[in-house]
Amino acid sequence: MSESLPTLDVQAIHWPSVIRHYRLSKGLKQAALAHDLGVTQTMVSRWESAAALPSARIQARLFDLYWVSQASVSRDVWLDRIGRHPAVVGVINPAGRIVRASRGFCRALDCDRHGLEGRYVHEAFEGDWLDLYDDLGSSGLFEGRVSSAESIDTVTFHAPDGTGRTRHVHGLHRPSFLPGPEIVWLLSGAEVSERVRDDVRMRLGGNRVIRKAI
């Protein structure tokens, strides 16, 4: 489960982006969001201009609102579902630690859950995902500045037994808003053939496309 992970404070959540992104994506005016949160419109405006930081209680509520807009179940049910998911699905925290790996993820890499969970992307993999993690990070995924990304990657997995396996993975990425508050990287993907890898790379015009939130 989500044992409290060491929170590296290097990538603080960028609250103006988080709030504006949520508000604009729901088509809300500042006054309407203020009403939902039980604060004044001036306060929302100050948060959005970075003149004030929302309180811990408001931060938690905003993350819950985000959560509801993306999922129809609680975070516990969601995490449990990811564990059983047949496709490649992973939850990666800001430090690059894989906190949850799906059954399909393990199957694609021919390992068990412990071959992935608790390990760091940089230590478990070699190849395009290292650049992807860096790119998502520098684009501000963990700060709430990215809305989604799509990528085509070739990665080599270092299994705990010392063997390696190389896979082409077509991936879809988005932030997920967990308590803490913490923004994690939700990776979902599928192993693809070399031909499909080339097709996707042609379509994307490169290895990845990152869509900024704000």
Partner: peptide, 21 residues
């Protein structure tokens, strides 16, 4: 560059999935 892109709705998220969904 730097303009807002909307939150990906659940339906869009499904249609972009690389896996079977």
């Amino acid at each position: 560059a730097g303009m807002a892109s909307p939150l990906v709705g659940w339906r869009n998220h499904v249609s972009f999935q690389p896996g079977m969904a």
